[in-house]
Nucleic acid binder design. Structure first.
Length: 1004
RNA sequence: GCCCGGAUGGCGGAACCGGUAGACGCGUUGGUCUCAAACACCAAUAUCGCAAGAUGUGCCGGUUCGACUCCGGCUCCGGGUACCA
């Protein structure tokens, strides 16, 4: 083969790998196992842009490296194929989501294959396949049929619970969940319960349970969303408003696992940021629950939760959430009207208002008083919406001197703000939550420290039965139902209004066909449209489906044994592969997917179905690759006006481009910005218009990489020039008042007709004064996506892989710049030339390698190995470049050097490596089964070392010393030389510091 | 507000455990090759200075023979999160 032709060799090897199942992993092997997992993608219609493969490339390098190091590596890929976009598309077009999804997956597989990833495609899973979601439903049924025993601290089958009910009734059962939801009964009563009664009693114990829940209801999407699907009061997908609504919902009792999810984090090799986010999300706080009796209401008590019992003597009033259940009972006739008014006003305020308007203080006095349990002082009971019904007990004891919100509230309503600690300061300005100092005005804890006071108070309250220490969690149970079509049906049916799980033998409960994908006219979810969709032809099924995170919570287990029809994963496969050794994916899943998946794993472990402690041992978040968008300055928009478009090549307009321009201008009007991949300005042939250049690929409807330009007439600029000369236009523009101060910048010269290129002439000043570049997330809607296919066509997949790694540290966010890829492309050509110096056939020699060549090779072996182990891929690419540069300078074409080099490079540029490996005489495709070259320290040993010599830390000269020279010898040699005379400014040495192998510093 | 990150040439970034700051690549400039372009190759490229040299890793201070690296105090940028009691 004459020259390096990536387009030929890459296709060749991709076909070879596919035909020979090169990367198929075996479930039995003598080798140690290693499981490398990528977060599987949702197959969106837009396909991949250059940002997506970053993590896949890195994990593929690790995979290929581990294979060379003798591991049996599992590296699968699949698709999270249930989801909203396909369903939204279905609602609009009537196209079945399964068809859209299938088509998108095809694109993904094609794109992923063209990058040369070594996935074991025989293990591909799709969450929307019935053969897969059968087991998702099966796990749901396991949750439905389990409860959490706090005494054993694990999930147990419900049969164990009902057996105890029959024996001892509800007495002494310590189950996770809200005790208030549950009834007490004796064993005798249990035996007399009907089946329906028994199911009702058991329901609040289940790990998957139905309950009236305050949910995030999104009318725009017609479904319920979880907290992490809501951003700033709007749905993450679609940006529709979200409101709170009380609805019967399926929930998963993830709170039962809160403590274990928290503790498990300490065992994981994950980024600290992710662990911290999970800790905050779970939000464990240690405090106390304190009961305040209510004055004149014998039976009423208000329970508050506080993390600062020590401040209880400063609690001058209580605040209840407006939704608190005692509000009605407590409100005095005199305050009734004001309270009703306040509650009504709160309801009118949407969640969004409450969030944006956190500063305003509002509240109302109920007229009632409670008694502070430590001193029996009466305290006023207020309502305010800053207290959340869903956290703690929905009531707080307000300590205005110690809590800023309570402080503002007290100031606003003129309530007292007594100091409780001698360390509190500035109480006329703000609250001081200090834990320092000794307590004052605080009855039994006067003079005590924080620690002493807390202990004494809890003991006091527990003794009187008015309080106890309590751990609280911010995290809520996970809502599990979505009123959508394109998801796993929840395997529940209703008999006589009671929910039953369908029999495992009847799984999968297949998603039925429906005629339309909208909710029904009566407001039921889309599944309400299914005809004759009944269990045993009699009983109606649950109509909501599972949320997006259901299928992704266990997919990594299915890869271990993807076609097993009898079990979700066989015991042998699960035992062999254990848990994921390296999990690569985006940081956006920190609190969603990664928490749910851990929860399911712990649950499965409780049932004895999996064997490791945690599912993902090491996690790496690849950083995002950002796109550069050219944004039109708002001031110029009013002056820009859409006229038309011409194709530069022939000067004619096309319908497609017209359509695109309409989109562009819509975008400008809506967002005040236009995003483009390149920035050029042009003048129309008739010289009346300035154009803003847009290089486009798939961002344009029907686009194909040709040059299109958006044309704008600048109505207020009277342009009369001129030979397509942009400089003149700019001059003219500047001469008008409007643009006198405009700055012109242009990066890409398009007008390259010889020396008259106006961009060359004034290049860094020229520019669309219309736009300014901005770095932001790469997205189709921002017109800043870069399509990897185009780069693969031009430079090859190996170059793209190398370049993405070369961009910078894997975990860092970094802007994309296509220009740089020529550097790695040049490197690959140079590497190729080492093997084919005459651009002809392979020409490697069998001569023995020189020490210099061996040194270059072994430094590379050592460094690349280290770099892969610490995921520093950018530095290893640069080391490859240095290595090839040096070998080229040494004119080294020796097999003894180049063959190991091919192995080193093969994880990064697998196609090129396969080709060279075969040319070197090895069996086709065998490079992935070869062994990594062995590092030999002895080739790096130097006999002389060059020391920098410094005076007071400033380097002045260099000097050679034998590697074996001692510090004393070096010091003597330096002092004997003329070094000090030349640089010492006449001073004498006070001290000489010799760092062996490093440097010499003379202090004067 | 709180919790995490980060800041180094024109750009992306490199620098082991505190030891020659700016590797590698892009870009730029000059040159060779070409009718020309592309490709390729050679040289230069932190700043100021002809040079010797001086100054330089966001800012202020400290520790040290020596600081991008450690400590104290800031500024700005990015991400997460929020009436969580």
């Amino acid at each position: 083969m004459p020259a390096y032709r990536p387009e030929e060799i890459e296709k060749k090897w991709q076909a070879h790998w596919k035909a020979h199942h090169t990367f198929q992993a075996q479930n039995h092997s003598e080798k140690p196992k290693y499981y490398v997992l990528d977060m599987f993608p949702y197959p969106s219609g837009a396909g991949l842009h250059v940002g997506h493969p970053l993590g896949y490339i890195a994990s593929d390098i690790v995979t290929r490296y581990k294979r060379l190091r003798g591991f049996n590596v599992l590296h699968p890929m699949g698709f999270d194929s249930f989801g909203l976009p396909a369903e939204q598309y279905a609602i609009q077009t009537g196209q079945h989501p399964a068809l859209t999804t299938e088509k998108n997956i095809e694109t993904y597989v094609q794109q992923l294959s063209s990058l040369g990833f070594s996935y074991d495609w025989s293990r591909e899973v799709r969450t929307s396949d019935a053969s897969y979601y059968k087991w998702t439903q099966w796990i749901f049924l396991k949750l439905f049929n389990s409860w959490y025993n706090l005494d054993t601290n694990k999930a147990e089958p419900l049969t164990a619970l009902t057996a105890r009910f029959a024996e001892q009734g509800s007495e002494g059962i310590n189950a996770a969940g809200d005790a208030d939801e549950r009834h007490s009964f004796t064993a005798g009563q249990w035996k007399l319960f009907s089946e329906k009664q028994r199911l009702a009693v058991v329901l609040p114990y289940r790990l998957a349970y139905q309950q009236d829940t305050s949910v995030n209801w999104c009318p725009g999407l017609g479904t319920v969303l979880s907290n992490d699907e809501v951003k700033d009061g709007l749905s993450e997908r679609g940006g529709f408003p979200v409101e709170r609504r009380l609805m019967p919902q399926w929930n998963l009792r993830i709170t039962a696992y809160a403590d274990r999810l928290l503790q498990g984090l300490d065992t994981l090799d994950w980024p600290d940021a992710v662990k911290e986010m999970q800790r905050n999300w779970i939000g464990r706080s240690i405090g106390a629950e304190v009961t305040f009796p209510v004055q004149n209401h014998e039976n009423a008590q208000i329970k508050v939760y506080t993390t600062r019992v020590d401040t209880i003597y400063g609690a001058t009033f209580l605040v209840l959430a407006p939704e608190h259940e005692l509000v009605d009972t407590l409100t005095t006739p005199g305050q009734r009207a004001a309270v009703d008014e306040y509650i009504a006003a709160t309801k009118r305020r949407s969640e969004r208002d409450r969030m944006t308007d956190v500063k305003a203080v509002s509240g109302v006095f109920t007229g009632a008083y409670a008694l502070n349990p430590v001193n029996n002082e009466p305290v006023q009971i207020w309502l305010a919406d800053y207290v959340l019904a869903g956290y703690g007990t929905g009531a707080v004891m307000a300590v205005p001197s110690g809590d800023q919100r309570d402080y503002l509230f007290a100031k606003h309503f003129n309530l007292p703000i007594p100091a409780i600690s001698d360390a509190q300061q500035g109480l006329d300005q703000q609250a001081d939550p200090t834990k320092e100092g000794r307590y004052i005005n605080s009855g039994i804890i006067n003079g005590l420290t924080y620690k002493e006071a807390t202990q004494k108070l809890i003991a006091f309250l527990e003794e009187k039965g008015l309080g106890k220490g309590k751990v609280n969690f911010r995290q809520r149970d996970a809502i599990f139902g979505r009123q959508r079509y394109w998801g796993e049906p929840i395997p529940i049916y209703y008999k006589d209004g009671t929910a039953y799980g369908i029999a495992e033998a009847d799984l999968p409960l297949v998603l039925p066909e429906i005629d339309e994908y909208k909710p029904t006219e009566t407001g039921e979810p889309p599944l309400g449209r299914a005809q004759n969709w009944l269990y045993k032809d009699k009983y109606p099924y649950e109509l909501s489906t599972m949320p997006g995170w259901a299928g992704s919570s266990w997919y990594y287990l299915r890869y271990m044994d993807p076609t097993n029809e009898a079990r979700f994963v066989s015991e042998e496969a699960e035992h062999y592969w254990g848990s994921v050794d390296l999990y690569m994916g985006g940081a956006e899943h920190a609190t969603g997917h990664l928490l749910y998946a851990r929860f399911w794993y712990l649950f499965l472990k409780d049932l004895g179905l999996v064997s490791s402690g945690e599912p993902f041992q090491k996690l790496i978040n690849q950083g995002m690759i950002l796109g550069v968008s050219e944004k039109i300055n708002r001031t110029s928009i009013t002056k820009a006006n859409y006229i038309g478009q011409i194709d530069l090549a022939n000067g004619e307009e096309s319908d497609e481009a017209q359509e695109y321009l309409r989109l562009v201008f819509d975008n400008i009007q809506k967002q005040g910005k236009l995003s483009t991949a390149a920035n050029n300005i042009f003048v129309s042939a008739d010289a009346k218009h300035l154009f803003h250049g847009v290089t486009h690929d798939d961002a344009l409807p029907g686009g194909g990489g040709e040059f299109t330009i958006a044309m704008m007439s600048l109505l207020n600029v009277n342009i009369e020039c001129v030979d397509k000369n942009v400089l003149d236009v700019v001059k003219l523009a500047k001469s008008s008042k409007e643009y006198a101060d405009a700055v012109f910048v242009c990066k890409d010269g398009f007008w390259q007709d010889g020396k008259s290129n106006p961009f060359k002439a004034g290049i860094s000043e020229l520019s669309p004064f219309l736009t300014t570049p901005e770095v932001e997330k790469m997205s189709k809607s921002k017109y800043n996506v870069v399509n990897p296919n185009i780069l693969i066509d031009k430079y090859g997949a190996d170059a793209l892989r190398l370049y993405e790694m070369f961009l910078g540290p894997l975990e860092q966010y970094k802007p994309w710049n296509t220009n740089g890829i020529s550097g790695v492309s040049g490197f690959l050509k140079k590497l190729w030339r080492l093997f084919h110096p005459e651009d002809g056939a392979l020409a490697v020699t069998d001569e023995a390698a020189t020490p210099a060549e061996l040194k270059v090779l072994h430094r590379a072996i050592q460094k690349v190995q280290e770099d892969i182990e610490k995921f520093s891929f950018n530095t290893s690419v640069s080391l490859f470049m240095i290595t090839v540069n040096e070998l080229t300078a040494l004119k080294c074409h020796k097999r003894a050097i180049l063959e190991p080099l091919v192995l080193l490079v093969s994880p990064y540029a697998p196609h090129l490596a396969e080709e060279l490996w075969q040319e070197l005489g090895h069996a086709p495709g065998s490079i992935s089964t070869a062994s990594y070259p062995e590092f030999r320290e002895e080739y790096l040993v130097e006999n002389t070392v060059t020391y920098p010599l410094a005076i007071n830390g400033k380097v002045r000269e260099q000097m050679q010393f034998a590697a074996a020279a001692t510090g004393a010898e070096i010091e003597a040699a330096v002092l004997a030389s003329d070094f000090l005379a030349k640089h010492g400014e006449g001073k004498s040495a006070r001290k000489v510091i010799v760092v062996p192998g490093r440097m010499v510093n003379v202090v004067v």
